[in-house]
Design a protein around this nucleic acid. Structure first.
Lengths: 235, 235
DNA sequence: TCTCACGGCAAACAGTCGTTCGATTTCACG
DNA sequence: CGTGAAATCGAACGACTGTTTGCCGTGAGA
C-alpha cells in the first residue's frame, strides 16, 4: 500500500460554504459509539485483501474515516487489533463447527459417520465464502492469519487444538478399524483443502479451467469437498 | 526481526593479533564469486522461516556476511531478489514434476492412471520436505510465496498455469467419464493438500496427535497423500 | 452551572525501511 | 607496472512505520 491520504474526522466532511456557522457537526449516537467497530471492520477487510504487513495503521484509519490514534486508543496496538479480530472470528467459526458436530452426534446416537463429521468441519468455513453473505472477508482473514499472523496468533494456532481434538475423536470413533495416526494425517489433508480456498487460488483455478469452476456456488462446492474427503477416508 | 548487527566484510574476521600486518585477507576464488549466491541462499532461508515482509535487507546481508548494498547491486531490489528465488525454485519444481509425468506417460503408453499422475504431482514437493536433504528451505519458501508473494509473483501464479494444464489434461484423459469441472476441482483439492505442508501446520498436527505423526518420514507421507487423493478421484 | 472522564484530534516522536551515493579496493589483462 | 572495469565498502537519504503526546470538545451526573 503506497498512497495514503491523511485520515480526517467526520467533521472534516462538512460543506465548505457554512464556514461561519462552524457547527460542531454533532455525531449521532451510533456514529460515536461505532468508531471502534469501524476500525475493526476496516482492518479486517484490508487485512483480508492485502495481508497483514502490507496494511499500515494509517491505511486502516483512512479506510474507517477515523483518527490515526484510534487504533492505539481502542485496541492498544496494531498487533492487539489483529489478535482481537482473529480471536473473535476464530471463536465464531469454532462455535459453528461445534454446533454442527453436536447436532451430528444427536442425530446418530453419539457416533456420527465420517461424512457427517466432515460436513461439520468443512461446511461452516466454506459457507462463509458465499459472496452474498457478509462473511467472505472474515474467512479470508482467518486463512491469511494461518500463514501471516503475529507470534501470538501462531501460538494459539499451534497450541490450542482443543477444538480440533473433538473432530479427531469423532473420526476415530467412526473408524475404529483405522490406525490412529492415519486419522490424524487425513484430518490434516482435509484441513489443507479448506485452507486453500483463498481468492488467489480461486483466480488460478479459474484461469486453469477457463471459467468452468464457479466458487460462488457454495453448496455444490461443499458437496464436492465432502465427497472428495469422504472418499479419502473410505479405505 | 529486531536486533541486527552491522554487516561486516570478510576482512573483519581476521585474528586481532596481526594488526600490523594488515594483510588484505585475499578472498578465495569461490568466496568472491559466491557473494551473490550467499545473498541468494541467506534470503531464501530467512524468507522461508520468517516470511517476506518480516525480513529486511539488513537481516539478509547480515546473515550472508556481505555488505548492505550487495542486494541492490546484484539483484536490483529486494523484490527482484524475491522474484529471482521464486522463479528459480518454481522452475526446478516444475521440471521435476514434468519429468515424472513424462515418465508416467512412457510407462503407460501415453495414458497413465490417476495414481501415477498424482505421484508426479505430489511426489516432488513432498520429497523436498526431507530434513536430510537441502530442499526443505526451498519448498517452504515456495509455499510461503503463494500467500505472501509480491505482486509480480502473484501475477505469475495466477496467469501461468501451463504447467498445471498438463496435469489437468492427463487427469481428464485418465478419467474421461468424469465431468471436466470435477477434474479441476479435485486437482484444486490435491494442491491444497500439498500447500498445507508448512512448518506451522506440522507443529499443530504434532500437538494434536501428541507426537504420533512423523512428517520426516517422507515416503510414507507421500504414500498417504497419494492414497487419500487417489481415493478422492475414485468416484 | 460546574465538573470530569471520555473520546477524538493534529502533531510530533523515534525508529526502521529500501535504496543510493561516492570513494575505495580488487584483480584480470596489457 | 599500469589501467580500467567490477565489486565492495561506509554512510547517508528520504520515506514510511507504530506509537505517544497534549489539547480540545462533548455530555452525563452532582
Amino acid at each position: 500500500m503506497t498512497g495514503q491520504q491523511r485520515a480526517r474526522g467526520l467533521s472534516g466532511a462538512v460543506a465548505p460554504d457554512n464556514d461561519l456557522e462552524t457547527a460542531p457537526e454533532a455525531l449521532t449516537p451510533e456514529q460515536e459509539a461505532a468508531t471502534k467497530n469501524q476500525v475493526f471492520l476496516a482492518a479486517e477487510r484490508l487485512f483480508a485483501v492485502h495481508g497483514f504487513q502490507k496494511v499500515s495503521v494509517r491505511d486502516i484509519t483512512a479506510e474507517a474515516n477515523v483518527n490515526l490514534a484510534s487504533v492505539n486508543y481502542h485496541f492498544g496496538s496494531k498487533d492487539a487489533l489483529l489478535f482481537d479480530i482473529f480471536r473473535r472470528r476464530t471463536a465464531e467459526l469454532n462455535r459453528m463447527r461445534a454446533r454442527l458436530l453436536h447436532e451430528a452426534n444427536d442425530a446418530h446416537g453419539g457416533r456420527p459417520p465420517v461424512r457427517a463429521i466432515l460436513e461439520a468441519l468443512i461446511g461452516p468455513p466454506v459457507r462463509w465464502l458465499d459472496p452474498n453473505g457478509d462473511r467472505l472477508i472474515s474467512v479470508q482473514f482467518l486463512i491469511r492469519a494461518r500463514s501471516e499472523g503475529t507470534e501470538a496468533m501462531r501460538d494459539v494456532l499451534r497450541t490450542d487444538v482443543s477444538h480440533l481434538r473433538r473432530f479427531a475423536d469423532a473420526l476415530r470413533a467412526a473408524r475404529p478399524d483405522l490406525p490412529e495416526v492415519e486419522v490424524y494425517w487425513r484430518l490434516h489433508f482435509v484441513l489443507g483443502m479448506v485452507h486453500n480456498n483463498r481468492f488467489a487460488e480461486f483466480d488460478r483455478l479459474n484461469t486453469l479451467s477457463e471459467g468452468l469452476t464457479r466458487e460462488d456456488e457454495i453448496e455444490p462446492l461443499i458437496r464436492r469437498m465432502v465427497d472428495f474427503a469422504e472418499a479419502g477416508f473410505s479405505r
